[in-house]
Design a protein around this nucleic acid. Structure first.
Lengths: 213, 213, 213, 213
DNA sequence: TATGAATGAGTTTTCATTCAT
DNA sequence: TATGAATGAAAACTCATTCAT
């Protein structure tokens, strides 16, 4: 059994190494331009080995995605964690700030996540992984919805459908970040990305606030 | 002279035909997966002919983009056109509705426009066309900013930076549409795209409204 | 008859214009890189017209070649023309100098002529033109042979086969010019092309001189 | 280790096979007309494999060139090698004979070497290889210069600049061979190539001989 | 398990030549 | 005679994936 365990650990480690290599390469050259040769070279294994651990390029991508999601989720959870009772607004602020932090700290993962939302990429990913990705995302969104739900319960916010409102926030923040990621758009709207991001949240929040008739 | 005119017309028509073919192919297979062979086949001309009318694949893309932008812009202008004095809110509503109409009526062009915001597309497009694309986009955004500016002037809205606010709205709507374009996200947030779109706007609008403390 | 004549003249002129254009384009971009489109554009006629006057790209080349040869031949003839009786050596010197002048004054034609000596080019040229090219070249070589023949007759030079000797000189001068045309070779043999050219001739001449046992 | 060695050997062999194939194809169809598909077909491998062993078409050319140069150089060295003290003339004769032998035995390589002297081949070849090609050429020329230098030292020959004289000889022989390689020129100068070659050398030699005033 | 050699379909772009008008 | 639109066969190079060892 010990041997088996060691083997499994070895295997997991190797897989992780390749994943790291792929991340480095994908993010440096761009997913499209990066080749499996690049990945193998960076991981210092042969190309065959890469295929031993991953079915395809897409599969590597899916794994990276999952990794990114997992990081994001833990950040969101940490941001939500009620060490002490918090107002709904405070919760939201912290979640949104965590999202910003994620986008800043892990721009590569963030871009990957955004890319998922376009992309014909889906069809080529093992179905199982896809489900997992779906679930994880949902969990993140659920945290936001929860905060909004709390707000409506407490009368601080007005939202007929908290999940929808959470979705709106999510989309809006993504939209803001996407826009500001483009140099051309930055020229058109000459403000710092952070300002755009914050303004998006503030407008959204005010829009939700209940005394708002 | 008639001959020359006929020729010019023929030429324009042929170019348009190829553009149509390219649009069909790009949108069906995805820009990346679509090949110039596909375009030529769809247009029922030889590949050489395609290159007679367009310098490169990127150039075709740029042309399509410009076409899409031009449609959008005319819709926005029509939506803004003050047949009679309108409130800022009314203006915004109409602009946003026009954007929705555009996204619905020309989903392909809409996707193309969204796609512009990624990729190193810029480098490979004739500089002149790029500038034009940039200018047209700016004009669209300017209409929104104008409406917001009117609102602040009239005291109906509060926005320190109307252009920024317009950008936020634009990003938010794009984000909403992007999210809902993805089946997975649709599963996560079980509402109609239109509902998501409208909610985004309503929240944004309420957020801007001045009596909002 | 007059109409026919005018027509013929017109035709010849047009052909000459295209030839000029082709020369400009071929020599600027290199024969290989120059396209028939380039030629047509430079000549300010349509591509179809170019084909009306020349069967093919190769045919244009052949015409240019012939033109170059004709220039060279007239230079050689002028150089040889015995306004007064000249020694064989003097004749040779003047012919060789004329060759150098040609190479300097018409580097493009000169390169073309050299290119003829390699080149699979032959097969694709109308047979008639080929014969003409052959004849013209022969006439040039004949002038050199004649000078050498004179030298042997007068006892100043020793050459069993004057035509062969002329060929040797021709080849040697071409070889010198070819070598010096290459930057790499220039690095290897750090002298001026003219020095190399002259030395080649001087050595050849001394080699022919009769007191040379 | 044995495995690694076998692999290396296999790899070298395969590369050599492709090189042979390329040589055959390039020489049969002409470098320009030969395609990488041709090379692959001749080598009985896929095109991808060719690119596995060589970066580009130019790189193959450079390899062939280097190979040819190396053969030539070893022939020249062997021809020069003074088993016993030799006169300068003898040395030169042997070097020139070796050059002839090379041109006869390896006409393809010879043509390739001549071809080097044109084209913008330089830019497209790995810089390192280019330097090597340059060096090898220089070494060959140096042998000739050395013999001439010996001759001037011993008083048998007169040459102000032995390297220049060597260059002249080289150019002259190339010129002779180039001329005779062309059927048209052969018609014009009806002698055997060998006669032309030899005459070129004899004239050159006599030209150098010191008692030659 | 690990290797890395081999594959070959696929991609964009070019250009001499033809031909209907 | 002149036009210029149309052709389509190339051509060089790439890369995800497979497979014998």
């Amino acid at each position: 059994m010990t041997t088996a365990q060691r083997r499994a650990r070895e295997k997991a480690r190797r897989q992780q190494e390749i994943l790291e290599a792929a991340k480095a390469v994908f993010f440096e050259k761009g997913i499209h331009r990066a080749t499996m040769d690049d990945v193998a070279a960076q991981a210092e294994v042969s190309k065959g080995t890469v295929y031993l651990y991953f079915q395809s390029k897409e599969s590597i991508l899916a794994h990276l995605l999952l990794e990114g999601l997992s990081i994001l989720l833990s950040l969101l959870k940490a941001a939500y964690a009620p060490q002490e009772p918090l107002s709904a607004e405070k919760h939201l602020r912290q979640l949104v700030e965590a999202y910003w932090q994620f986008a800043q700290t892990y721009p590569d993962y963030f871009r990957l996540l955004l890319a998922l939302d376009r992309g014909r990429f889906r069809e080529r990913v093992p179905a199982g992984m896809y489900q997992q990705i779906l679930m994880e995302s949902t969990r993140g969104l659920e945290l936001v919805a929860k905060a909004i739900r709390q707000g409506t319960r407490e009368g601080a916010l007005t939202a007929d459908d908290p999940l929808l409102a959470a979705g709106v926030l999510w989309g809006a923040l993504n939209g803001a970040l996407t826009l500001m990621a483009n140099p051309v758009r930055q020229e058109m709207i000459p403000v710092e990305p952070k300002a755009m991001f914050d303004t998006t949240f503030e407008l959204f929040l005010r829009g939700l606030q209940a005394n708002n008739r």
